[in-house]
Amino acid sequence: MNRYLLPGGVFLLLVIVLYIGIQRAPQKTVIPSALLGKPAPQFTLPVLGRNESFSSTSLAGRWHAINVWGTWCPECRVEHDMLLRIADSGELPLIGFNWKDDDAAALDWLAQLGNPYSVVVADRDGRAAIDWGVYGAPETFLIDDRGIVVHKHVGAMTPAVWERDFLARLPRAAALPGAVTGAVTGAVTGAVTGAVTGAVK
């Protein structure tokens, strides 16, 4: 008699394991970045639409987020409004990482939809993205003031994700509006905005 209950018992154990598995899945589906808790990879890349380059070393000492995007990616379009709202709130500077894209198309996109980024670098051949372990766009990395990768989000940015995974991780000081303007040198910000408006004209 009892042996007929055995399959059900084994199945019950399996369900428990699967249930725990699902509870832990959210961290896993994000494909845990090998970079979490490690220093962010350094890059020196051309600034989109400008004849100059931008080095990640100038971001040292500031909390910031790096958003990987491309004009070829529909989900990037979906998250764009959210990025603009983040930029407006001034909670954290966004660095645009334009991935495997066409410069003209990218400038068009920013001119039409608005530019949420403090600075946009162009990784045209996708080489720098390899260091970051980027496997699809959009992806957003949160980097702290010591240059450590604190979090990585794959997929479109939503208000919920922003509050839960990004804002919640910030120390209070970094969330102050004042920190933003100082985060990236005003010169660069100005340069990019100038470039974008220039492209529109």
């Binding site: 369900v15 699967l18 249930y19 598995g21 699902i22 899945a25 896993k28 589906t29 494909i31």
Partner: peptide, 21 residues
């Protein structure tokens, strides 16, 4: 469900995992 990471799980979602469970 994304419970196991594999080359095949392109779009895994835990909410879906709960439903299937």
């Amino acid at each position: 469900s994304g419970v196991l990471v594999s080359v095949h799980s392109f779009a895994a979602d835990p909410a879906r995992g709960m439903f299937i469970l």
